Simulated scan of single mutants.
Amino acid sequence: MEVGASISEANRKKKVGIGELERVGPDPVEEIEKIIAGVLVRRVILRTLLSYGPQTGPDLRWGISKYNEIGDELFRNQMYWTLKDSFDRRINGVSDALLYFNLKHLEITGLIIRERSELEYKSKVARINPLKIQLIRQYFRDIIPLACISGFDFDDDKWRLTRLYQKLRRTKLLYNQGIDEGMNFTILPEGLKSKISAGIPRNQLFEIPLNKMSYIEVYNFLRRKIEDLLQTHDVIINVTLGSRFFTIALTQIAFEYNLKIFYLDPQENIIWIKD
């Protein structure tokens, strides 16, 4: 038995390979499948929130009703949802109980968040939990534009940031990975933006106030920015530059939000830390 176990373990290690990470535990996408459990209403709720952002109960009821009529392809058409008020607003076969039972299930399992509407206090709005948005996109196999975000705070090495942007333009990252034009962002301490030489668009640089440079405040600033980007883009993290504060905060966020992390070495090779 021990010999068999040793052979099995050796074969497993050979299959995984040196330097590769073996997945531990269940596949997160399979976990989402288990939560949906074949219930179409849950799938449509997630598809609606992922494609069109936060929604009220009545809009979700209408969406579920129309999904049953028109199917997935037309339902995902942005124009159809934008012009939904022009269509028949009757809701067939979707009761309040059916909707809210499944909303509660998705909320308890952590896939969505429900909170009071800012416009109508009595109404609740459902949205995808930002921590789960990448996993849900993987489940639906959605392909969306990429954004890249990095942190930089070395005043005496500011020229490296310009060189980094130049290197990124030359690498396959921007071309093969599909980073959107103008979506390569860098977070800087206050006052550093004006010192950086030309060549980097100013709307791609964001400053943190100097009195907010503790680890937790840097982390929260980066987290809020990344959550905003995740609404419309797949986000990858660049840890080539920056102090320990920025690097550790970005790495922590990447693991919490299931984001890819890379490092660009001096030879302009992309080293994926988390892919």
Rank of each mutant, 00 (worst) to 15 (best):
A5W: 05
A5D: 10
S6V: 08
I7P: 02
R12K: 10
V16N: 04
L21I: 09
E22C: 06
R23P: 10
R23W: 11
V24W: 00
G25M: 13
P26N: 12
D27R: 08
V29C: 07
I32S: 03
K34G: 04
V39S: 03
V41R: 00
R43H: 03
V44I: 14
L49D: 02
L50F: 05
L50T: 07
S51W: 04
G53V: 01
P54E: 07
T56A: 03
T56R: 02
D59T: 00
L60I: 02
L60W: 00
R61H: 03
W62I: 03
K66T: 10
I70G: 02
G71A: 14
D72A: 14
D72N: 12
T82R: 05
K84P: 00
S86F: 09
D88R: 07
R89G: 03
V94E: 04
L99M: 11
F101C: 07
F101T: 13
L103P: 10
K104F: 13
H105Q: 13
R114C: 09
L119Y: 02
K122T: 00
N129Q: 12
P130T: 09
L131V: 14
K132Y: 13
K132V: 14
K132E: 15
Q134T: 14
I136G: 10
I136R: 03
R137Q: 09
F140Y: 03
R141S: 08
I144A: 07
L146Y: 10
S150Q: 15
F152L: 14
F152T: 08
F154C: 09
T162R: 11
Y165G: 05
Q166G: 11
L168R: 05
T171M: 04
Y175S: 05
N176A: 07
I179W: 05
G182H: 05
M183D: 00
I187G: 01
I187C: 01
L188C: 02
E190Q: 04
G191Q: 08
S194V: 11
N203E: 06
E207C: 02
P209D: 04
L210Y: 05
L210W: 00
K212M: 14
I216A: 15
Y219E: 13
K225S: 09
I226V: 15
D228S: 13
T232Y: 14
H233P: 00
I237Q: 09
I237N: 06
N238M: 05
V239I: 15
V239R: 08
G242F: 09
G242M: 05
S243Q: 07
F245D: 09
T247L: 09
I248M: 15
I248Q: 11
L250C: 05
A254G: 10
F255W: 04
F255P: 13
Y257R: 06
Y257S: 10
Y257D: 02
L259Q: 06
I261W: 08
I261N: 01
F262P: 06
D265P: 01
P266C: 12
Q267C: 00
E268P: 02
N269P: 05
I271V: 13
I271E: 12
W272S: 01
K274R: 15
